[in-house]
Amino acid sequence: MGWVNIIIQGGLLGGLYALFAIGLALSFGIMRLVNIAHGDFIVLSAFVAMIVSAGLGISAIASLAVVIPAMFALGYLLQRGILNLTLGSDILPPLLVTFGISVIIQNLLLEGFGADIQRLHAGAIETESVILPGGIAVGVFPLLVFVLAVVCIAGLQFVFYRTGLGRAFRAASDDPDTAELMGVDKRHIYALAMGVAMAFTALAGVLFAIRTTFEPSSGPIRLIYAFEAVIIGGLGSFWGTLVGGMILGIAQAIGAALSPTWQILAGHIAFLVVLIVKPSGLFPRTRD
């Protein structure tokens, strides 16, 4: 009974990790760009939501209406203005530039907000729970996050495989020069992809900050969770990312049940096991 509960709670937490991972998977999938600052953008989104909800007197959830478009625009401009310049056969420039951006964001947040622990509020939904058949209590909010993750991935899957924009994304990912021959402006498409990645990052950041506390230095470990979910799931597969996130969440929940100090370590161990046993992940699609 206890274990079933742990696995369910861990699996639901995996929904949040999948949301962390979507942005990373998108930017890698389309422009082979690994954004080291990804975790810091998650945290940045939470801070932006904090300002917006305080400024407008609205709940953190309602602030998404502002935060998502804002982060989309930031992502578009970041890719167009800076990251497009780093793309090429050399992996160092994108890596080191996003690394620099990561340090800049962290320290700007530290200067602006101090090292205090923050939290976003979404009202009663934070504490409500429902009882599943079998008597297991599940928080409404974690359930909502999980459902949102499923909806987001289904939506992405639809856009990617059923629309003209999705075809352009995949074509630019396969062969950017030939995609240009089709009239696809790769700089614009890459910027759109980063915008979309950042929109998901914004959603993930706000949900994360409602669920747990955050501070300016919370980013890097979220990058690592996102990364672990992507690698466990397999590069280039959105549904794989969800499974990867769930495996990570369940591993952490099991670890936490054994001893609080084992929570995060257990997640890392799950990642290591997959890396050693099946380095291409459970559901690989693209090769790089």
Binding site: I231, L272, P279
Partner: peptide, 28 residues
């Protein structure tokens, strides 16, 4: 032997994960 399975930028994050693992293991 573990991180060499990852390429490029993923290698970078893989080494980072190991640093986290060392930190956590030493802490307990």
């Amino acid at each position: 032997l573990a991180v060499f399975r990852l390429r490029g930028a993923y290698f970078a994050i893989g080494t980072w994960v190991f640093a986290e693992i060392f930190l956590l293991v030493v802490s307990i």
